[in-house]
Amino acid sequence: MKRRLLLGSLALALASSAPTPALALPGDSIYQLDATLTDQRGQPVRLDAARGQPVLVSMFYTSCQFVCPMLIDAARDTEAALTEAQRRRVKVLLISFDPTRDTPDKLAAMARQRGLDASQWTLARTDAATVRKIAALLKFQYRALPDGEFNHSAELILLDAEGRIAARTANLAGADERLVGAVRRQLAVGQR
């Protein structure tokens, strides 16, 4: 099945003069943005690294005291509502708005502190201009305050396997049933 898909995409790519790197990516996919981030291990990771799977994505910063911890809990609770098999097929991507202070070491420390397994959780940073673009694609609002804190919207967003926004929630008190349902539906689509 996958091979058929791959051949199909190649055919499409050859047929049109579609811009790289979006080979047969849908026009409304955020993976259209050609961006490479750095993860908590200091490794480069492309924005579309998890293409082919649904991804829970959000934006945060490590010094955030208030909502960001809730964000992580909400992502965890959402995953907890899935079966073990389902959980393995969902990735979580958290991107920092504070690249100056959120170095890979800082990100790693946070991952350790919250017990976030690197095989599933990617905490990433990138340059300020790319952060602004990713936030624009995800429709995230954020603003730096003089004391180093950020004023930002707080949502958990579900991307489908092709990087399109499938669902989003601002309800971070535990798992949002609707979001969990959306995740399950995306996983069911993936079953061929």
Binding site: C64, F66, V67, C68, R132, A135, A136, K139, F140, Q141, Y142, R143, A144, L145, E149, F150, N151, H152, S153, A154, A170, L172
Partner: peptide, 30 residues
Amino acid sequence: VDDFNALLVNADSRSAADPDRLKFCGAGAI
């Protein structure tokens, strides 16, 4: 402007004096 999405205003501008703190983590709506 570059940071057009940093204009954290409540869509209903009349509520600006009463920020929804959970909606905009930090200082609330501008």
